[in-house]
């Protein structure tokens, strides 16, 4: 056969679709059940570090202490904006939210770590660091972080 050859590029478009089921585990399940059934936000207190962490976890990453259900504490629901950004394009992950959308890191009252969530119910131009906010819950909650629609100014 001919050894010298000119070959046109050969490209194809394909995709892989993968489904998964994430199990929230001991601490995660407590968190989502409280959020869904009681509109409560749980964090976990590490006695060794004297820190309250969100989301709740079984091991304190800093000191490797084993934390238990007894260490769960209610935090928030209000908190303060630590940092934020305005996103001027739509995100496929939030099909129901029109741009511009505002993401913020919110330090809930009683917690030492922040939660990233959306800010709504306010002119994006009016948001500033230090602003006090409180969560708005949806009616039919199903145990998902989007059971909180967004945080709005107090």
């Amino acid at each position: 056969m001919e050894n010298k050859f000119v070959q046109a590029p050969f490209e194809v478009d394909q995709h892989i679709t993968a489904h998964s089921n994430y199990f929230a585990g001991k601490m995660g399940s407590k968190f989502y059940v409280a959020l869904r059934d009681s509109k409560e936000i749980l964090g976990v207190r590490c006695k060794t570090c004297s820190k309250v962490l969100w989301p709740p976890r079984e091991t304190c990453g800093r000191c490797f202490s084993l934390l238990t259900e007894d260490d769960l504490v209610k935090i928030g629901p209000g908190g303060s904006v630590v940092s934020f950004t305005r996103v001027h394009y739509s995100e496929p992950i939030h099909p129901d939210v029109d741009a511009p959308l505002v993401y913020a890191v919110i330090q809930l009252d009683g917690a030492d770590s922040g939660m990233t969530h959306l800010i709504g119910g306010v002119d994006p131009e009016q948001i500033e660091i230090g602003m006090r906010v409180t969560p708005v819950f949806i009616e039919n909650r199903n145990g998902n972080i989007l059971d909180i629609v967004y945080f709005k100014p107090e």
Partner: peptide, 11 residues
Amino acid sequence: RHDVDQGEMVN
């Protein structure tokens, strides 16, 4: 292992 998340299992 529905009782644990990946981290709790590894731990």
